[in-house]
Amino acid sequence: MSRPISESRDSLFAAQTLAPDAQQGVGTADAYAAERAPVSAGALPPVLLVDGLTRTYAGAQLPAVRSVSFALGRGECLGLVGESGCGKSTLARCLLRIEEADAGSIMLGGQDIAPLRGRKLRPHRRKIQIVFQNPAAALNPRLRIEDSLLDPYLQLGREAKLSHFAYTSRDAYVRRLLEAVELPAELAGRYPHELSGGQRQRVTIARAISIEPEVLVLDEPTASLDVISQGAVLDLLTGLRRSLGLSYLFISHDLAAVHRMSQRIMVMRSGEIVDQFEAEDLFSEERHPYTQELISIF
């Protein structure tokens, strides 16, 4: 039988603050209380605080992302679920500053990075990293795995004082990273096309965590993998979050995967967050009709 979901959902931090969620499917009296309450439910401020983020593509009538606000607590996994085209990937790209938002603030570790440019932005880049859906596109096909793994360190690593992946020598660093994502060290010299999809995705995860970001945005990290690798990658991600104290924004159209991974879930539709709740309140009667529709599908 399946293992209890609560086991995979608690974290170092959440285990102390969130009530044990043994009773699946029983809605709490006030499901929106958590949304209004401070995320970290304690002294710790949220590691990422997004307010009023809006992005409109040139020529489009409606914004792809419309006034999105949320907070991500330290050590938390926040799920974001929605259909394709709902704006969840655009939101991710705006957070990573790959695309520019038209309005809104992105408070990352107490600093609004939305207005920063160029040299001013660079030191903040280390704190937030992303894993994309398709690892084949996310790795430069002409770079060996070790070179891809080194890329972030070369630019951002020197300024940071890395503890988990301290750089002693090139080889040791690469080996340590591969080990962290449970890959054999001999993959270091290979090219991406020589790896399986699951292995490639593990490499992009290793690369993302190499410079020890605080926030990791996971944009459909398992959507292009086969079923067995999907489960293994989700397990790996949960393990990394606990051991490294990472915070995740987990984006997916797969409500079951989001529910398994996250403590809190946001539902996005047509560029807006329409529902936001604690994971254990998913089956509550008070859910937004669209959320209920999504549930009925799974």
């Binding site: 500053r97 996310a138 890329d151």
Partner: peptide, 26 residues
């Protein structure tokens, strides 16, 4: 347009570096 160029940007690589390290070999 590919994701690895977007990711290189999140790694703080300058445009010149992205061009020389990631695009020129292609």
């Amino acid at each position: 347009q590919k994701d690895y160029v977007a990711i290189a940007r999140t790694h703080g690589l300058s445009d010149a570096r992205i061009m020389s390290r990631h695009l020129l070999p292609h």
